[in-house]
């Protein structure tokens, strides 16, 4: 069953106009699969992740459909979504370091949260403590305040709290960007462990760091400027990527252990196009070393090999240039 996202379009309302941050995105994640979602900052990957659990007041769903375990996920209905959150869809946020209320003990906060969702803290406590120990923490952290915990400890606490109710879909949003390399590896292993122990069914790992995906992801989806660029099994994306953008991303991968600034990926000159008034045709055209005349039209996202799709005219033989997606 898993997660099915079909032609999803999300726009952001800003004072200057609407920005289509997620444009015509289609993909699915199977049960037990960990899918990596990668791209430069501002490519819409976080918007996509957030839209699946909690739409910001500035976000609007323009079209498309999301299905989880065979039933539609009412992502633009904030009231209906509230019931799904935590139980069915959960998130490990980007800001895990500051996600815990600073003036509540960890255990107290979790108990209040659980009770507010209609669960009994007492009966959930043994499992909670078991998982705390599983990730290598001491059970007495429940009696501590967040400021008493180190960054890595907070990260692990948030990971357990988010997955406590065994959600179907877990969104892990940039969870490694604030960590040092050894902790990054440990966090990656925890994600695998959570999957293997069935704490979560499907996992979506959003990151700008492909090296962590090489460690944990089964498949990788590359986004560029709000659109899908390429999707394939991890070894294929890393080993033989087709989209020029993916190729440049892979070639610019730093040596293991070197972190780079989120804003500028070394090796790819230029910046992503503005999403407010995106240029027509392939959005990577201006930075692409292989751009040619067909790129003036929007490239379709087509499956070139089983399980390997790409949106590039270099690999779209037999497809005629169709009109691009209409504006937001």
């Amino acid at each position: 069953m898993g997660l099915k996202v079909d032609q999803l379009r999300i726009c952001y309302r800003t004072l200057r106009g609407d920005v289509t941050a997620v444009d015509d995105v289609t993909f699915d994640i199977a049960d037990g699969e960990i899918m990596g979602l990668a791209g430069e900052s501002g490519c819409g990957k976080s918007t996509l992740g957030n839209s699946l659990i909690r739409m910001d007041v500035r976000m609007r769903q323009l079209g498309g459909r999301v299905e989880l375990d065979g039933a539609e996920l009412p992502i633009s209905d904030a009231r209906a979504m509230r019931d799904y959150r935590f139980k069915v869809v959960s998130i490990i946020p980007q800001y895990a370091m500051s996600a815990l209320n600073p003036t509540r003990r960890v255990g107290k906060m979790v108990s209040e949260l659980l009770r507010s969702r209609g669960f009994d803290y007492k009966s959930a406590l043994p499992e909670f403590e078991r998982r705390v120990k599983l990730v290598g923490l001491d059970a007495d952290i429940l009696k501590r305040y967040p400021i008493e915990l180190s960054g890595g400890m907070k990260q692990r606490v948030v990971m357990i709290v988010s997955t406590l109710l065994n959600p179907s879909l877990l969104i892990a949003d940039e969870i490694t960007s604030a960590l040092d390399v050894s902790t990054q590896r440990a966090v990656g292993e925890m994600l695998l462990e959570f999957r293997d122990r069935n704490f979560v069914k499907t996992t979506m790992v959003i990151t700008h760091d492909l090296s962590i995906l090489a460690q944990v992801a089964d498949t990788i989806l590359i986004m560029y400027a709000g659109k899908l660029a390429e999707k394939a099994r991890t070894d294929v994306v890393i080993g033989s990527p087709l989209h020029p953008y993916t190729q440049l991303l892979i070639s610019s991968l730093p040596e293991v252990g070197v972190r780079h600034d989120e804003h500028t990926l070394v090796g790819i000159p230029g910046r992503p196009p503005p999403l407010l008034n995106p240029p027509s045709g392939c959005r990577f055209r201006d930075r692409c070393p292989f751009a040619f005349d067909r790129c003036a039209a929007d490239p379709p996202f087509v499956e070139v090999q089983p399980g390997h799709s790409v949106a590039c005219w270099l690999h779209a033989d037999g497809v005629s240039p169709a009109g691009g997606a209409e504006q937001c």
């Binding site: 909690r54 959150r85 935590f86 959960s90 969702r117």
Partner: peptide, 11 residues
């Protein structure tokens, strides 16, 4: 952030 987290978990 802690508010956003609570909301994301449906509080």
């Amino acid at each position: 952030d802690y508010t956003h987290y609570l909301e994301a978990l449906g509080a």
